[in-house]
Design a binder for these strands. Structure first.
Length: 506
RNA sequence: UCCUCCUUAGCUCAGUUGGUUAGAGCAUCUGACUGUUAAUCAGAGGGUCGUUGGUUCAAGUCCAACAGGGGGAGCCA
């Protein structure tokens, strides 16, 4: 019988049989340490020359990184180990000896790793990220199921370019043009009129030639839609939803978050009420005209700049000291190499800092000169959310920069009842939502204003023709959410096989 | 589409104002070491410096074009 590594605690002191792959190997005299992974976890397996046959010991020495094997041995409790247990090996049987596995335990560049994504998924951090992705997906289903929502699938082939703004993938659909869906929202609205509360959760496609760490061509979206919900109810739901996901992840993915070295401040602050501010207030905060918790956006940025300049000075000094050491006559090879490695690392850090040093003045400039009525850019969102330690809700947006289906504010018709939820620590937008326009005449007027083809929206307009009700919803980018929770630097790491501009394989 | 940076060993990167035979760490192989956590130490092998053209006595280094990639803007989740 085969045991999973995650279940080892049930077998302390007993002999078990494991199967998996060699994640890492270290050797000592008369000893081989194999770190085995089996998909469920990691476990160090010790092969001692004194305790096994010569044949078994030779086999252990032959086991290279990523070789597949089966082994049996006794389960020993050992607090020092990652899973808390290790195996005293008795027998090993190699299934396949791996030669020249491309990914080592040392650092690699993003491009190389993406090229080897099919193998990279085996790595520890990637393993943790995919498990969190799975856990969050399950939590999303649970959250909505517990609240009486029905999960509804929207089509992937659509005939209309929904909001008319973004570039879509065009394809041939039995001789007529069709587009890969960029949102399921309009279909969600139709389903909400059938079920009351629904949500879609599926892949969406954008053909923008974006090359940034926040964009994918194919990504997953969660889009709830609720009949008889106004904007306030929508915001309440967003807040409950985000808090539920974050809390659930903290509770169920402890080991994974540890592997990823995720700062836990987010999880400790998530119980606090999310501040709700209007777009106008957000603009004041951005321009530095209004402080948040005693912090001013512009001053914070200037402090950052000073700190960076300070650090750059320190690094340059350390580099010249170490280089002087290397230059000295009669320096031992070990000392020389050690210092050279330090210098290389420092130079890398220096490059990152100098990039920031170039960027921050632009951020300050963008913040100070922000024009009321514009949409926030990436840096603006960073500047605002840096001042908060919980997600924030920005609502009441200028109508001109939002989609045609958003309902106008009754008191202030230049604004719409839309909301963006921005994640803290500088992360930026994760949710965009709104109350929808339910009046058929107003909706028709908006479609005209936005110069959208009315014919393709006929079915959508029907929803206002027959029993129209106030309703609201929001959209959440699944990968953005995972990126925020795991704090990985690049969205490409949050999906098993990323698709983005220029990338179709593996 | 625009701005910016990069391309040197299997991987990550040094390589100064152009100047002898191209440098390191990791990985691989050999050896040393009773317990390592990305182990460490000693040694060995491993290169058409992205491609093409130009300047020069001499090009990894300077210039041009092209290709590939990173980051960002726009757009967005």
């Amino acid at each position: 019988m085969i045991t999973n590594i995650k279940d080892l605690e049930q077998y302390e002191g007993k002999t078990v049989r494991l199967q998996g792959w060699v994640a890492n190997k270290r050797t000592g005299k008369g000893l081989v340490f194999l770190v085995l992974r089996d998909g469920s976890g990691y476990c160090q397996c010790v092969v001692s020359e004194e305790q096994v046959s010569n044949e078994t010991f030779e086999t252990a020495k032959r086991a290279t990184q990523e070789s597949s094997l089966q082994l049996s041995g006794a389960v020993i409790k050992d607090e020092r180990q990652v899973g808390g247990y290790e195996i005293q090996v008795q027998e090993i049987n190699i299934l396949q000896e791996t030669v020249d596995y491309p990914i080592s335990n040392k650092e690699h560049g993003v491009d190389f790793l993406i090229e080897n994504r099919h193998l990279w998924l085996r790595s520890r951090k990637q393993w943790a990220i995919m498990r969190i992705r799975n856990s969050v997906k399950y939590a999303i289903y649970t959250f909505f199921h517990e609240r009486g929502f029905i999960q509804i699938d929207s089509p992937i082939f659509t005939g209309n370019a929904a909001e008319g703004t973004t570039t879509l993938f065009e394809t041939d659909y039995y001789g007529q043009p069709a587009y890969l869906a960029q949102t399921g929202q309009l279909y969600g609205e139709a389903a909400a009129m059938a079920h009351g509360k629904v949500y879609t959760f599926g892949p969406t496609f954008r053909a923008e030639k974006s090359k940034t760490r926040r964009h994918l061509s194919e990504f997953w979206m969660i889009e709830p839609e609720m009949a008889f919900y106004d904007l306030d109810m929508d915001m309440d739901l967003i807040e409950d939803f985000i808090r539920y996901i974050v809390t659930d992840t903290y509770k169920n993915c402890k080991q994974e978050l540890e592997i990823l070295e995720r700062d836990t401040a987010l999880f400790e602050n998530i119980g606090k009420k999310f501040p709700r501010i209007t777009y106008d207030e957000a603009v004041q905060i951005l321009r530095g005209e209004r402080d948040v918790n005693g912090k001013n956006s512009i001053e914070t940025l200037r402090d950052d700049l000073n700190e960076i300049a300070q650090r750059i000075g320190d690094i340059k000094e350390e580099i010249s000291t170490r280089e002087a050491t290397i230059q000295q006559a009669g320096v031992k090879a070990g000392v020389k190499n050690f210092n050279q490695a330090k210098v290389d690392n420092l130079k890398n850090e220096l490059r990152d800092l100098e990039e920031k040093q170039r960027n921050i003045p632009q951020w300050i400039d963008s913040a100070l000169n922000f024009t009321h009525g514009d949409d926030f850019g990436g840096s603006d969102e960073t500047v605002i959310t840096r001042l908060f330690n919980t997600p924030i809700m920005v609502y009441k947006w200028p109508a001109a920069i939002k989609a045609f289906y958003m309902k106008r504010d009754e008191q202030d018709s230049e604004y719409v009842k839309g909301v963006d939820c921005l994640a803290p620590e500088g992360f930026g937008e994760i949710v965009g939502g709104s109350q929808r326009e339910e009046d058929i005449d107003l909706l028709l007027a908006r479609i005209k204003e936005h110069q959208l083809p009315e014919e393709v929206f006929n079915w959508y307009i029907d929803l206002r023709r027959y029993g129209s009700v106030p309703h609201s919803g929001f959209g959440l980018g699944f990968e953005r959410l995972i990126m925020w929770l795991t704090n990985v630097p690049h969205i490409r790491e949050t999906i098993p096989f990323p698709r983005y501009y220029g990338r179709l394989f593996p």
